[in-house]
Computed example of a mutant assay.
Amino acid sequence: MRLTLLAACLLASSTVHAQANDAARKLAQEAVIVDTHIDAPGILMDTWADLGQEAKDREFDYAKARAGGLDVAFMSIYTSPKQDADGSAWQTANAMIDGVEALVQRHPDKFALLTSPKDVEHLRAGGRVLLPLGMENGAPLVDKLENVRFFFDRGVRYITLAHSAPNRLADSSYAAERPWNGLSPFGKQVVAEMNRLGVMVDVSHLGDASALEAIRLSTVPVIASHSAFRHFTPGFERNISDEIAKAVAARGGVVQVPFGTAFINPDSAADMQAHFRARQAFDQRNAALKAQGKPQEDREAFEKAWADAHPVRASTLAQVLDQIDYGVKLLGIDHVGLGSDFDGVDGELARELRTVADYPNLVAGLQARGYDDADIRKILGGNLLRAWAQIEAGAGK
């Protein structure tokens, strides 16, 4: 089903790409476009694809990136709560990093690893797409503070402290239980160590109390790598509140807007929140049944029933632009950027933003809404690179 949906998305992408005018395409190629959240490594773990060539079932590959003007694509090193629980998160994260390194080694003329904003200009020469690493979920750190340094040395430049369940560091926005009501003692140590090394603290996915404490404790700017604004999706804690977004901006950070339907369509956001809660309740029931020695419920049947009752909805470029407009009005032009979540939302994306080839459509939309080229360059990547440079400059201080 995923491949069929993505094939349809890619067909749609080739249709809408022409909507971008010459000025938009030119600016997309000239500006430095930074996307802080692309889930290509997870798919590489499941089914290897040579992303140096056109990969028709993927939203990110070299050909699409160059067509869209993408320069800096943060590769998401994602691990799940299940992998945290079964002890495989550390190995999984390392295997994903191995995969990104292999991609670069196979195509040194097309890709390069990026570990500092200072290196963007010279590394992107010749049309290379630069691949910094962002760790989505702090689970691979296990309970060893030295693992922050270990993954820094492997190229990780931001860490999303938690994902869809509470972990050793922080609470999740999706989960009902909040064991820390902020950061754990270990989470506080991790934030300090990230500051010391120059790793960006990412508050996307965190429960509100955890996000606020991370911002308060950080001595340098923090980011939200892929968080839409909760203003449009009331009650959906996964999206960032005005209070937290203002706190991010006040410290010099950036809120990176995603393109996924589940984040920008209010009904889809409500479905996603309900799905996570229903899945957690399902897991709790099965754990109780297992403890009693009784047969467990079938997960595949549960997921199918949920999908049947909650059909996929649509979203549009206009909704993404509304998010950016709102962020700019709330925070100022210097604190909004892009974190698409390409290859991470099963093709459920705004119609005109189906792959990394489609950034010119976004540029055209911003132009149509009155943004000048200088401000568009900030949104496309300048803001994130400025915040990253500040975080790097603050390392060790």
Rank of each mutant, 00 (worst) to 15 (best):
D283I: 11
G370K: 01
S76D: 14
G134H: 10
P311E: 12
P311W: 11
E59T: 04
D202E: 09
H37I: 03
P132I: 07
D334C: 00
D242R: 01
H107N: 01
V312F: 13
A23G: 13
R58A: 09
F276R: 13
Y62N: 00
F263Y: 14
K304L: 15
P132S: 07
K329G: 06
L133G: 04
L183W: 03
I77S: 09
K110H: 03
N21F: 01
C9T: 02
V104W: 03
Y371E: 02
S218H: 03
V356C: 13
G396D: 06
T233I: 09
Q273R: 15
R178S: 08
S14T: 15
R216L: 07
D143L: 06
V328Q: 03
G382Q: 06
V248H: 08
T160N: 14
I38D: 00
R124T: 05
D322G: 03
N265S: 11
G198T: 09
L5C: 07
H17Q: 13
D109H: 05
L130A: 05
S14L: 10
G381N: 03
D22C: 04
V257R: 03
A170H: 09
D86R: 00
G198M: 12
R2C: 07
A270Y: 07
C9M: 13
L353M: 04
A228L: 06
E101Q: 14
I38R: 02
P132G: 07
A24Y: 01
G69D: 08
D283V: 08
V328T: 02
A162W: 04
Q105M: 10
G87W: 04
D373T: 14
S184Y: 10
F276P: 05
T115H: 04
H275I: 11
F111A: 04
V320N: 00
A170I: 05
D50V: 03
A7L: 14
V16N: 08
A318Y: 06
D50Y: 00
D375R: 15
N21V: 05
V100S: 04
S340P: 09
P132F: 03
G52K: 07
D22L: 11
F236C: 12
A165R: 12
V255N: 05
L6D: 02
V129K: 00
K144T: 13
A63L: 14
R25F: 09
R279I: 05
A162M: 11
G381S: 01
K290N: 09
K26V: 13
Q323L: 12
R285D: 14
P360H: 08
V156H: 08
Y174F: 15
A307W: 12
H205C: 08
R377F: 13
V201A: 07
L70D: 00
E54Q: 10
H205G: 10
D143Q: 14
K144F: 12
A24P: 00
Q292H: 06
M75A: 06
F263H: 15
P295N: 04
L380M: 07
V257F: 06
E303C: 01
A176M: 12
W90N: 11
